[in-house]
Write a protein that binds this DNA or RNA. Structure first.
Length: 637
RNA sequence: GCCGGAUUAGCUCAGUUGGCAGAGCGACUGAUUUGUAAUCAGUAGGUCGGGGGUUCGAAUCCCUCAUCCGGCACCA
């Protein structure tokens, strides 16, 4: 007797083990046709797998979120089958569902070409049309290894060899294609549907390790229906328009060129944005009890040897030589901050010391990592190091989280992912120290009301860290803020304080940044706003534009009034139609335009037009100026 | 760094089999004095990413380097 409880709490009883397909058929022919998989006591499984014990069962159809992952995973398998049919010499490796789609990694001596992708996609459509059944089989481990080796599928054989003992070896048959897979899968290839598209070719290391062979990865996207596929493709097109590299050019903010790969040429408008942001952060830090310092960029290698960076990051440091010394361009500020801390003697009464610097750092990033403003070789961190006692870690961390979230909110970011990266396999310091540091971080984030996602084993070698992650226009995540607990550097560079007991003690260092790098943050900021920065951040806040040259002198008066109110302005007196000027400044993402013609000049008014707005508003000059000034004040008032 | 693709005017891009290097936008000049997302006309603008090779002849074919794009790896 098997009792199956359905989501509506009704119970069906069967004399023998029953499959999901049979349950669906029992409920109705419509459901039998729509069924894709079943969830049994919370676990997703194939329709065909018999259920031999009492269970809560729900039938998954295309409408369920679970279906999407199945469709994508199956699309990956269909792609593998297509590749094997077209290029039998190819070895298949792994092919999971991912956000928005799927990929499959292949090993093949000759590279795939974009034309191959078209052929593969066409063959995938054939396979979907064939509607091959996906049949699950449990195999004997040794037999499975032998089978895949005979097939020349050495990667698959290796995967099986590395599976833990006792793990059942399941394979899925679809047509003549047999793939090792944990499942579950859809009942047949036809259920994948036709709303998929192969997107791009990429290299990817076997098992994610750069010491291994590089495989060829094909990425695809798949959706339940054509409408959703189309919407996704349209979203990608829109995202492209928000790309900070494109907007940076269109808005005349910055450029990057070959002669200085990985460094930014900031143009006047971009540099204005940079300074506004920096001034804002400076004010917030001052308010939060930080002191600001500035430290050398060229520092003798001995300091980096003492700090441990020379050993670990030597190849990513730029060096310079003078006479008989080797200097490094600083890749980070912390060792220098310790030098300032060490001047004189610090009492426990002085702690915490919150030492901030807009530190210009240089790192020789691998060429393939460079990406617009997001990943550069020369950047400025809004860095600070908090020297404190162990007891102060929790309160300092909480205060930092509060400050960071408040700043992100001011800058327009409400959705922040906070990752907690705990101890890595190779690390410095005793386990008890790590226990203490990790606990302190978790308690502090909870106290700050933040939820964290565990990022296992990804902490720095000297301590656990919090990573504050924002997402760019195309859905890529970028780590911006960070907080890292460090027990090691104070030891290595001999930082001390005198405790209540009159004895020397080691302070703890909290490495922390909010924006991360000014460069990267501005990149994310541009994409977040699609270039339409709020008034207080916009490099040019108002453009005064004339309708005819007869209004020129009045326009100059208007501009002067705005400038006296502290607004960043430009004036457009060109002999062009107002349509032309409006279009051009709109494309330049200028938040406000004051348009003046003969009427305004006579009345002492201005026509205020907001970026993207359809209407204009006629206001007395003084009123318009006062209003814009108020709006431009920003979060600091 | 690795895999794949790309590099032609300031920008976006076309350029057939190896046979005179093109368009649109922008810039400049002139006309126009204009009422809320492109006024008209004209002019200028090129080491076809750099270097090497094959060829009577190379933007086009080969080699090499650089940079960029998409991933992967890395990210103190």
């Amino acid at each position: 007797m098997v009792a199956i409880t359905l989501p509506d709490d009704s119970v069906l009883s069967y004399d023998n083990p029953v499959s999901g397909a049979e349950i669906a058929a029992g409920i109705g022919p419509g459901l039998a046709k729509a069924a894709l998989a079943v969830r049994v006591d919370g676990r997703l499984q194939d329709l065909s797998t018999p259920i031999d014990a009492d269970a809560a069962v729900s039938i998954i159809t295309a409408r369920d979120d679970d279906a999407l992952e199945l469709i994508r995973h199956d699309a990956a398998h269909v792609m593998a089958e297509a590749v094997k049919e077209l290029y039998p010499e190819t070895q298949v490796t792994i092919g999971p569902a991912i956000e928005n789609g799927f990929y499959y990694d292949f090993s093949r001596p000759t590279p795939f070409t974009p034309e191959d992708l078209e052929k593969i996609e066409a063959r995938m459509r054939d396979i979907v049309g064939r509607d091959e059944s996906l049949v699950r089989e449990v195999w004997d481990r040794a037999e499975a290894i032998r089978f895949f080796k005979d097939q020349g599928e050495h990667y698959k054989a290796q995967i099986i060899e590395d599976l833990p003992d006792g793990e059942p070896i399941t394979v899925y048959r679809q047509g003549d294609f047999i793939d090792l897979c944990r499942g579950p899968h859809l009942p047949s290839t036809g259920k994948v549907g036709t709303a998929f598209k192969l997107m791009k070719l990429a290299g990817a290391y076997w098992r994610g390790d750069s010491k291994n062979e590089m495989l060829q990865r094909i990425y695809g996207t798949a959706w339940p229906d054509a409408k959703q596929l189309k919407a996704y493709l349209r979203m990608l097109e829109e995202a492209e328009k928000r790309d900070h590299r494109r907007l940076g050019r269109e808005m005349e903010l910055f450029h990057i060129q070959d002669i200085a790969a990985g460094s930014v040429f900031w143009h006047p408008k971009g540099w204005t944005l940079y300074r506004v942001l920096q001034d804002y952060i400076r004010a917030r830090l001052e308010d939060a009890g930080y002191i600001e310092v500035n430290t050398p960029q060229l520092v003798d290698r001995s300091l980096w040897e003492d700090s441990g960076h020379w050993e670990k990051f030597r190849e990513y440091m730029f060096t310079a030589e003078t006479e008989d010394r080797v200097l490094a361009l600083k890749p980070m500020n912390c060792p220098c901050h310790v030098q300032i801390y060490r001047q004189g003697i610090t009492s426990y009464r002085d702690l915490p010391v919150r030492m901030a610097e807009f530190g210009s750092c240089l790192r020789n990033e691998p060429s393939g990592a460079l990406h617009g403003l997001m990943r550069v070789r020369a950047f400025t961190q809004d860095d600070a190091h908090i020297f404190c006692t162990e007891d102060q870690i929790t309160s300092e961390t909480k205060a930092f989280c509060d400050l960071l979230m408040s700043i992100y909110k001011d800058l327009g970011f409400e959705e922040v992912v906070v990752k907690f990266a705990d101890r890595p396999p190779v690390r410095a310091g005793a386990d008890e120290t790590w226990d203490k540091a990790e606990t302190a971080l978790i308690e502090a984030t909870a106290a700050a009301g933040l939820e964290t996602v565990l990022n296992p084993g990804e902490g720095a070698f000297y301590g656990p860290k919090l990573e504050f992650v924002l997402r760019d226009a195309i859905g890529r995540d970028w780590q911006l803020g960070t907080l890292q607990v460090d027990f090691v550097l104070p030891e290595r560079l001999d930082a001390t304080y005198i405790g209540e007991d009159g004895q020397k003690h080691r302070p703890v260092m909290l490495h922390r940044a909010i924006l991360g790098s000014l460069e990267r943050f501005i990149g994310v900021l541009i994409e977040q706003y699609a270039g339409r920065l709020p008034l207080w951040l916009a490099p040019v806040q108002v453009v005064v534009a004339t309708i005819t040259n007869a209004a020129d002198s009045y326009a100059r008066e208007v501009r002067t009034a705005l400038a006296e109110a502290g607004l960043r302005t430009e004036i457009d007196l060109r002999n062009e139609k107002i349509n032309y000027k409006v279009r051009e400044h709109s494309l330049g993402k200028i938040p406000a335009m004051l348009i003046v013609g003969n009427r305004e000049a006579e009345d002492g008014t201005v026509a205020l037009r907001r970026l993207g707005g359809k209407d204009q508003e006629i206001l007395a000059l003084a009123k318009a100026t006062a209003r814009l000034k108020e709006e431009a004040a920003g979060p600091l008032g």
